[in-house]
Design a protein around this nucleic acid. Structure first.
Lengths: 110, 110
DNA sequence: CTTAAATTGTAAATAAACTACAATTTAGGG
DNA sequence: CCCTAAATTGTAGTTTATTTACAATTTAAG
């Protein structure tokens, strides 16, 4: 690979990662899309939200909408449910795990 | 930073990037969310789609839904419009640019 | 001023999501 | 097996979002 080509390569690649991050941070999706992405029925997602396990982005909004961290949480909870944990403990474990990741990253930023 | 910490750091970081990519590839959003993310009115997005400038994910679907590459395209088109290009030429330029990126990446994969 | 492109407005119809009930299923302990 | 609480699912009726199909308005350039 020529050097000039490599530079273009790295530029577009980094650009994409930056873009993707910005996009993910802006992203707030409705329950239909979350359901399709995760494979979890809408009904079940509503149930989890009613129980306070997951949170919608804007509580005053008449429609459930979720941001990216919350969708991650949903996916992780589902994994632990499939492993046999109860909803409550699955949620607790996920919360702890996400906190750990958060802490690790904040150390990294110092 | 201790070495063990660094390993954890890199693991979670890479994990996230992989997850984010998988997520972005699955993601298909409705016109409302695209409009909010991009700041472009729904009416305008429908107009662009009617003209064939942008494409919905599933043409047989009764509702407009867009995947991530298409949303990227929308954002880029808006940028060029703001710079004064016409819709047609903006769309052409963006298409070419995305092709270039595509080619560059496919070379990288070899 | 004219023309074509681009955007915007809106009413009526269709589709998606919500709520508020309740029924059903599941997992464990006794 | 029975019972209980957790978890999930079903659904009717209502609200909200989106679409279509018309047309009007604005914008840019010759």
């Amino acid at each position: 690979m020529k050097k000039s080509q490599q530079i273009i390569q790295n530029q577009t690649e980094n650009e994409n990662i930056v873009d993707d991050n910005a996009f993910l941070n802006k992203l707030i999706v409705g329950i239909g899309e979350v359901s399709e992405i995760t494979g979890i029925p809408q009904r079940q997602l509503r149930y989890w939200q009613d129980k306070g396990i997951i949170k919608t982005y804007d509580k005053n909004c008449s429609v459930r909408r979720f941001n990216y961290p919350e969708i991650k949480k949903i996916i992780l909870i589902k994994e632990l449910l499939d492993e046999g944990y109860t909803l409550e403990t699955a949620a607790q474990k996920v919360t702890k795990r996400l906190q750990l990741i958060q802490e690790t990253f904040s150390k990294f930023k110092k």
